[in-house]
Design a protein around this nucleic acid. Structure first.
Length: 432
RNA sequence: GGAGAGGUGCAAGAGUGGUUGAAUUGGCUUGUCUCGAAAACAAGUGUGCCGUAACCCGGUACCGAGGGUUCGAAUCCCUCCCUCUCCGCCA
């Protein structure tokens, strides 16, 4: 959520910037509710003060009838004020949480994703002397992907991945973990991009795949209806990305400044209901209920947050470039960056069979919007406590990136050339 | 799944209804001392909210979480979560 003090000081700006993201928020009512809330709070504090001083004056002796009566009066008043306060506060929190994060000033203003900007286009599209197959035709032909049997067992949007495609996935995982835990790679990317950041490498993480309602809600990323599976019986949600269990890891903690930045590269199977996407991407493995993903998550100081975002994007480009895939870097406009994000970049990778670039990566910078909910703070060396900034970014969504590899590297006889950087992880296999 | 024991500050650990936001010890910070360090001594050492834009200050809340009883709750009651021990089951 946003800082109420900030909203109080910049009501018009907050309303305007929210609208640019497609959120119509009633700031006037929010501030009115906040006034009422604080008014009640100080009344409650006053009553408690009376109660406390009465208690102190009674100390160890038996209270008189008069004191008992007076105490009951205070108790009743408190009970009524407190119940009123709870209602007001609930309303206040709902209203406060409905305000999206403010986009950074350089985020393009746009009301639909059509107004996203192509920041750059990188790499040469492959030229084929034959009609390139879609990844799902190729996948079926080579017995890499079996969705028919998966549908029998688990339903639509599930797949058995098989044979060399499985080896390719493990190669990709090893490649990413190896790259992001290598301090020299991180240092070089920081230097090449002119960033002022600590060069420490990413910490590899295998996080839990399920989490409770409270942390999920606090992550500001719970979209129960459309995205996430719930296990009712146990009050657990299947994570929709490693991000959910990574950003919540330090919930309610105060981190000493010198421990930041905390950079994590998490691997997790991700589960998504994909409600409302009927008919979209039904073929192949671009949009599944279950897929594996490597996700970067960075907790940092406020002053380095934006550079961490730039580093994440630089890493994404480094990874996609290493695979030799053509891509576009997309600056998402205000309507598309998402509620908790201050800025966001997508990478869209070339899919020859669709003759288009498809989203394979996203990088989101949340400033302190997420950490305020999660209560993740840093302690400065001078003892000041502030909210940290958070970044998350895709390293590889494995299904989509393998689909891209299959399509871009296919041969006339239906094989797939293994990108150079992955071969050492596959027993130097040159094609699958 | 069954039986039992627990959860208090940075750490250990006291506290079973009233000057307990919390003893004591250790850690850490600062100061005195010292060429410097150690030792000793002294002081300090949590987070949030409100007053308030900020500091100081004042008020208030927080002893796993949430409810309840009471004039008054870390302490009593209820529900939940977590940890440990034993049994069972299991990759």
């Amino acid at each position: 959520m946003l800082d109420i003090q900030y909203i109080k000081q910049n009501p018009d700006k907050v309303a305007e910037r929210s609208l640019q993201k497609g959120y119509k928020v009633d700031i006037a009512t929010l501030l009115k509710v906040d006034d009422k809330r604080r008014q009640l709070l100080s009344e409650i504090d006053g009553l408690r003060r009376q109660r406390n001083s009465a208690t102190e004056s009674i100390k160890g002796r038996r209270p008189s009838e008069e004191e008992l009566t007076q105490g009951r009066v205070i108790k009743d008043q408190l009970a009524s004020k407190e119940s009123e306060y709870r209602q007001i506060e609930e309303d206040f929190i709902i209203r406060l949480k409905s305000v999206p994060n403010m986009p950074l000033d350089d985020v393009p203003v746009g009301l639909t994703e059509d107004e996203n900007q192509v920041a750059k286009t990188v790499g040469d599209k492959p030229e084929f002397a034959f009609e390139p197959l879609s990844h799902h035709v190729l996948g079926e032909k080579r017995d890499f992907i079996d969705k028919i049997r998966a549908a029998k067992i688990s339903g639509s949007r599930f797949a058995y991945l098989k044979n060399d495609l499985v080896k390719l996935q493990f190669a990709l995982i090893s490649f990413v973990i190896g790259t992001l835990t290598n301090p020299e790679v991180i240092a070089k990317l920081i230097k090449d991009n002119g960033l002022k950041l600590d060069p420490r490498p990413f910490i590899p993480i295998l996080p839990p795949a399920m989490l409770r309602t409270a942390p999920y809600q606090a992550s500001a990323r719970l979209n129960a209806e459309e995205v996430t599976y719930k296990i009712e019986q146990d009050d657990l949600w299947l994570n929709a990305s490693a991000e959910h269990t990574l950003c919540t890891m330090y919930m309610d903690e105060i981190i000493p400044e010198d421990q930041l930045p905390l950079r994590f590269i998490g691997y997790s199977t991700s589960f998504r209901r994909e409600a409302g996407t009927y008919g979209k991407d039904v073929e192949g493995i671009l949009r599944m209920h279950q897929f594996d993903k490597l996700e970067m998550e960075v907790l940092s100081s406020p002053e380095t947050g934006l550079d961490e975002h730039k580093l994440a994007v630089a890493i994404q480009e480094h990874l996609v470039n290493a695979l030799g895939l053509p891509y576009q870097l997309i600056r998402k406009c205000t309507a598309d960056i998402g509620k908790p994000n201050a800025t966001g970049i997508d990478i869209n990778t070339w899919f020859p069979s669709q003759n288009t670039y498809r989203e394979t990566h996203t990088a989101d910078y949340m400033t302190d919007y997420q950490s305020r909910d999660l209560k993740i703070r840093l302690k400065r060396t001078d003892a000041n406590v502030e909210f940290i900034h958070t970044n998350d970014a895709t390293a590889f969504a494995l299904g989509r990136i393998m689909a891209a590899i299959m399509e871009n590297y296919q041969t006339a006889d239906g094989h797939v050339i293994v990108p150079d950087v992955l071969r050492s992880y596959m027993g130097n296999q040159e094609q699958i």
